[in-house]
Amino acid sequence: TYTFKVDNKDQAKKAAKWAKKLGLSFQIEKHGDTFKITVQ
């Protein structure tokens, strides 16, 4: 499981695209202005 934080929606979208490309499941949680992405 890999967790990282991004500062904006664009970065969150890029991370989601990357995870989908690799066939991984992911969750994006919004914490105020940051997004926490968990990829597994």
Score class of each variant (00 low, 15 high):
residue 40 Q to P: 03
residue 29 E to V: 12
residue 14 K to P: 01
residue 6 V to L: 09
residue 29 E to L: 06
residue 7 D to P: 10
residue 34 T to M: 13
residue 2 Y to R: 06
residue 7 D to T: 12
residue 15 A to Q: 02
residue 36 K to Q: 13
residue 17 K to W: 10
residue 7 D to V: 10
residue 12 A to Q: 02
residue 15 A to D: 01
residue 18 W to L: 07
residue 19 A to K: 00
residue 18 W to S: 02
residue 39 V to T: 03
residue 23 G to A: 03
residue 12 A to N: 01
residue 27 Q to N: 09
residue 21 K to A: 12
residue 3 T to Y: 10
residue 32 G to V: 03
residue 5 K to R: 08
residue 1 T to R: 11
residue 22 L to S: 04
residue 36 K to N: 08
residue 39 V to K: 00
residue 22 L to A: 08
residue 5 K to T: 15
residue 32 G to W: 04
residue 25 S to C: 11
residue 16 A to W: 08
residue 39 V to A: 02
residue 21 K to T: 08
residue 2 Y to M: 08
residue 17 K to V: 09
residue 18 W to T: 03
residue 24 L to C: 04
residue 14 K to E: 07
residue 5 K to P: 06
residue 13 K to M: 12
residue 33 D to M: 07
residue 7 D to Q: 13
residue 34 T to I: 14
residue 20 K to S: 08
residue 11 Q to D: 11
residue 28 I to E: 02
residue 16 A to L: 09
residue 26 F to H: 03
residue 6 V to R: 01
residue 40 Q to D: 07
residue 18 W to I: 06
residue 30 K to G: 05
residue 3 T to K: 04
residue 33 D to F: 07
residue 3 T to L: 04
residue 24 L to Y: 10
residue 38 T to I: 10
residue 28 I to T: 02
residue 14 K to I: 09
residue 22 L to M: 12
residue 13 K to L: 11
residue 16 A to I: 14
residue 20 K to H: 07
residue 6 V to T: 08
residue 6 V to S: 03
residue 3 T to G: 02
residue 6 V to G: 02
residue 23 G to W: 02
residue 22 L to E: 05
residue 22 L to V: 06
residue 9 K to D: 07
residue 20 K to A: 10
residue 23 G to T: 02
residue 37 I to A: 02
residue 9 K to G: 07
residue 16 A to K: 11
residue 37 I to S: 00
residue 39 V to W: 04
residue 1 T to D: 09
residue 12 A to R: 03
residue 40 Q to W: 15
residue 6 V to K: 01
residue 35 F to H: 02
residue 29 E to D: 07
residue 37 I to L: 05
residue 15 A to R: 04
residue 26 F to W: 06
residue 14 K to R: 12
residue 22 L to W: 08
residue 25 S to Y: 08
residue 4 F to E: 02
residue 37 I to M: 05
residue 20 K to P: 01
residue 25 S to H: 10
residue 27 Q to M: 12
residue 22 L to D: 01
residue 13 K to Q: 11
residue 20 K to Q: 12
residue 39 V to N: 00
residue 10 D to S: 13
residue 15 A to F: 15
residue 28 I to G: 01
residue 31 H to T: 14
residue 37 I to Y: 01
residue 13 K to Y: 09
residue 2 Y to H: 09
residue 21 K to V: 07
residue 24 L to A: 03
residue 5 K to H: 15
residue 8 N to S: 13
residue 34 T to L: 10
residue 21 K to L: 09
residue 3 T to S: 11
residue 18 W to A: 04
residue 25 S to E: 09
residue 23 G to L: 03
residue 18 W to P: 00
residue 13 K to G: 05
residue 25 S to D: 09
residue 36 K to F: 15
residue 18 W to G: 02
residue 32 G to H: 04
residue 24 L to S: 01
residue 9 K to N: 06
residue 1 T to S: 13
residue 10 D to T: 13
residue 37 I to V: 11
residue 3 T to E: 10
residue 31 H to N: 11
residue 29 E to I: 09
residue 13 K to N: 09
residue 16 A to V: 11
residue 20 K to I: 09
residue 32 G to F: 05
residue 20 K to M: 10
residue 16 A to M: 12
residue 37 I to H: 00
residue 36 K to L: 15
residue 28 I to R: 02
residue 19 A to M: 14
residue 5 K to I: 15
residue 9 K to Y: 14
residue 12 A to H: 01
residue 35 F to L: 04
residue 16 A to S: 07
residue 17 K to S: 09
residue 9 K to F: 14
residue 28 I to M: 08
residue 1 T to C: 15
residue 14 K to N: 07
residue 7 D to M: 12
residue 26 F to A: 06
residue 5 K to Y: 15
residue 35 F to S: 01
residue 4 F to R: 01
residue 29 E to R: 06
residue 9 K to R: 11
residue 32 G to C: 06
residue 18 W to E: 02
residue 6 V to M: 05
residue 39 V to Y: 05
residue 8 N to E: 03
residue 28 I to P: 00
residue 22 L to R: 10
residue 35 F to K: 00
residue 26 F to R: 00
residue 6 V to N: 01
residue 4 F to N: 01
residue 22 L to K: 10
residue 33 D to I: 06
residue 23 G to C: 06
residue 32 G to R: 04
residue 10 D to W: 14
residue 25 S to R: 11
residue 32 G to Y: 04
residue 32 G to K: 05
residue 34 T to G: 15
residue 23 G to M: 05
residue 33 D to K: 09
residue 17 K to H: 09
residue 38 T to L: 05
residue 39 V to D: 00
residue 3 T to R: 04
residue 15 A to T: 06
residue 4 F to L: 04
residue 37 I to G: 00
residue 11 Q to W: 06
residue 40 Q to F: 15
residue 13 K to T: 08
residue 35 F to E: 00
residue 27 Q to H: 12
residue 31 H to P: 01
residue 39 V to Q: 00
residue 23 G to F: 03
residue 4 F to S: 01
residue 14 K to Y: 08
residue 5 K to N: 14
residue 16 A to F: 09
residue 32 G to D: 06
residue 13 K to H: 08
residue 27 Q to K: 13
residue 10 D to E: 14
residue 12 A to Y: 04
residue 34 T to N: 10
residue 5 K to S: 15
residue 7 D to C: 15
residue 10 D to F: 13
residue 14 K to L: 11
residue 7 D to W: 14
residue 36 K to G: 03
residue 5 K to V: 15
residue 12 A to T: 03
residue 8 N to F: 04
residue 11 Q to S: 09
residue 10 D to H: 14
residue 19 A to N: 01
residue 10 D to A: 14
residue 21 K to E: 08
residue 24 L to V: 04
residue 15 A to G: 02
residue 37 I to P: 00
residue 38 T to S: 06
residue 40 Q to E: 08
residue 8 N to G: 10
residue 24 L to F: 09
residue 12 A to E: 01
residue 38 T to N: 03
residue 1 T to P: 07
residue 20 K to D: 05
residue 26 F to M: 08
residue 13 K to W: 09
residue 29 E to M: 07
residue 40 Q to Y: 14
residue 19 A to G: 02
residue 11 Q to L: 10
residue 7 D to Y: 14
residue 6 V to W: 03
residue 40 Q to L: 10
residue 9 K to S: 08
residue 5 K to W: 15
residue 40 Q to I: 12
residue 36 K to D: 05
